[in-house]
Amino acid sequence: MRNIFAALGIAVLAALAIWHTTSFPAESATWPRSVLIVMLLLSGILLVAELRSLRAAKSAAKSAGRAREPEAEASPPGEAGQRRRFLAVNALMLGYLVAVPLAGFYLATGVFLALYLACWGRPRPLPLVLLTLLPLAVLYAIVTLGLRIPVPQGLLL
């Protein structure tokens, strides 16, 4: 089922993008429109192939005398802890994205690192502080002082 939803979703997005190309001049629209039409066609092929596979699997199961029907999709990560960690890491990355323009790269990175290590590594307070500050110092030495790669500035730092 997951693949069917994916094919439908991509088809809808491709159709919307094709509609958007109508606002372009004809010369500019030709190439992206051709690519999007290919995407739309491929979504259709995927949809048909998925439906046929499902039907074939069902009829094969029926002819084999099975009472239960196999489900097409792989089950999503089932473990509750895994799902929790999945949500936590996404929230942490998004939070970091918001924090950097406010707090600046190094402060936001320090908080991000400490939170990540606290949640995933569960170390004691002293190692946590050391594992946050030491890498930050090394990062500053390599990135800012050594390679002189610019890092995002924030309102605070």
Partner: peptide, 10 residues
């Protein structure tokens, strides 16, 4: 899939 539901899913 026709043989076993579990193997079929995979």
């Amino acid at each position: 899939a026709a043989q076993t539901p579990e193997e079929g899913k995979a």
